[in-house]
Amino acid sequence: MLSRKVSVATVELRFSALPAHVRTARLVAAAVARRSGVDEAVLDEVRLAVGEACSRAVHLHRRHCPDRPVTVTLVDDDRVFRVAVTDEAPSEQDGSPADDFDEFTESADLDQDVAPPGVGLAVISGLVDDVAVEAGRGGGIVVRMSWPISA
């Protein structure tokens, strides 16, 4: 019989760095979170945070290593639902949303209307209480987030 072990993935998703797959990652994360017992009211937050982390990873992979996949690990860790989004691209400057967007809204450059890369991480920090960003393998980062399981 299998014993329950911390850090063993409940569901692991590895996807090519394409924007279309970010939606899939969001849907899977929300479905696993719901099944793990994460409060219904918090599922929107899970969906948005995982989407932001994956969008950021896809954006950086497309620029630096388009052939490498992005990995999302979803763990039902008894009382806590843990998510880790791992990329393998070198990090670019990640700033605060206010600074980034101030600069962005004031610049007259119309060709550059993609949100600055720091905004995704900043949205996550503003949204999720428990979030940590760690150095990962291959120069990338791991965005770790967790939510309490209510049941």
């Binding site: 969001r26 969906r47 948005l48 989407g51 932001e52 969008s55 967007f101 962005f104 809204t105 610049s107 007259a108 119309l110 209307d113 993609v114 949100a115 600055p116 905004v119 995704g120 949205v123």
Partner: peptide
């Protein structure tokens, strides 16, 4: 139903265009 920072970027881009 869903909006992320990429969508925000596009709205800001739109704002800059009309402001011009």
């Amino acid at each position: 139903d869903f909006l992320d920072s990429t969508g925000l970027g596009v709205l800001v881009g739109g704002l800059k265009r009309v402001r011009a």
